[in-house]
């Protein structure tokens, strides 16, 4: 495609497939088997620790009794929760997602939770307080796995009395606005809420024509369809690595959180150090 300025860009097709999708009627038995195995490999598994498994088994509707789900998607959102919330109380991991796709191969071991430093989806609960679940998702969930991921977690949670808060990272390049955004205005938050969510929002709504995709969109769509009150705070940042300035943008969400969980108003320095250490420039030029 040639643009207004004359340069020629190679555009990818917005159609599903470049070529016509051929009928797959002539599938052999082997094709079917391969397809089946691939599907099995890409299945999303949600694992709970023995105590929560017991809770699910013993309840009448085979569900957990939590009333809040807080989901952090991306390193900044997860880092924010680590620094402000998970250090404050006695939080312990109680579950994890294991899934396999092209970009996250590490979490395929079904029986083990992700190792320290390994990207994964971990779920935490506070000791002695079984009302809030916190899920930090750092691994890549493929497009075909998003629906399954959402289905798996909401199958374990009650429909009534549940409220959902999603914090999600996004690059500012994906944000469309008629005005030019300069570096000083980032990071900033935009919100999306389901129709069942009645509380006041802490930041402007996400303006058209902006959309959200990925895990945040899957969770929000599910909540909208099921009538669960849910709100998403999407943080647009121009940093490509986790950093404390972007994490601070989520501070407005603290007000929402303060009703449900105990939190530190000042971020834990050790945790911040750990989260942002991965991005330290490892150059040996001056050492």
């Amino acid at each position: 495609m040639a643009t207004f300025f004359g340069e020629v860009l190679s555009v990818y097709s917005r159609a599903v497939d470049e070529d016509e999708q051929e009928e797959l009627d002539e599938e052999t038995e082997e094709d079917i088997q391969i397809r089946h195995e691939l599907l099995q490999k890409r299945e999303v598994h949600l694992n709970w620790c023995p105590e929560l498994c017991q809770d699910i088994e013993s309840s009448s509707d085979k569900k957990l009794q939590h009333s809040h789900l807080i989901l952090a998607v991306g390193p900044n959102a997860a880092g924010f929760l680590s620094a402000h919330v998970l250090t404050a109380g006695d939080w312990a991991p109680v579950g994890w997602f294991s899934l396999w796709n092209e970009r996250s191969r590490g979490t395929s071991r079904l029986s083990d939770s992700p190792a320290v430093g390994e990207p994964g989806c971990l779920i935490y609960q506070q000791k002695g307080n079984a009302s809030v679940l916190i899920c930090q998702c750092l691994s890549y969930v493929a497009e075909d796995q998003l629906f399954q991921w959402t289905d798996k977690i909401f199958a374990c949670l009650p429909k009534r009395g549940l409220s959902v808060l999603v914090l999600s990272d996004s690059p500012v390049a994906e944000y469309k606005t008629p005005n030019y955004i300069n570096g000083s205005s980032t990071p900033f938050l935009r919100a999306l809420k389901t129709s069942a969510y009645k509380e006041a929002l802490r930041c402007p709504l996400l303006e058209q024509p902006n959309i959200v995709t990925g895990l945040a969109a899957a969770v929000l769509s599910h909540c909208e369809v099921q009538g669960v009150p849910a709100v998403l705070y999407q943080c647009y940042s121009d940093m490509i690595v986790p950093d404390s300035v972007t994490m601070e943008a989520y501070r407005v969400a603290l007000m929402l959180l303060s009703k449900t969980v105990k939190l530190e108003s000042c971020p834990n320095a050790d945790v911040l150090q750990k989260v942002s250490r991965v991005t330290d420039v490892s150059s040996n030029l001056y050492t």
């Binding site: 998003l146 999306l192 389901t194 303006e207 058209q208 024509p209 995709t213 909208e224």
Partner: peptide, 20 residues
């Protein structure tokens, strides 16, 4: 379908914009 969410694409005013 691949999941996606946004506000009301057919909004005509600020009042009806906040529909997921």
């Amino acid at each position: 379908l691949v999941p996606m969410a946004g506000n009301n694409p057919y909004a005509t005013s600020d009042q009806d914009a906040a529909v997921l």
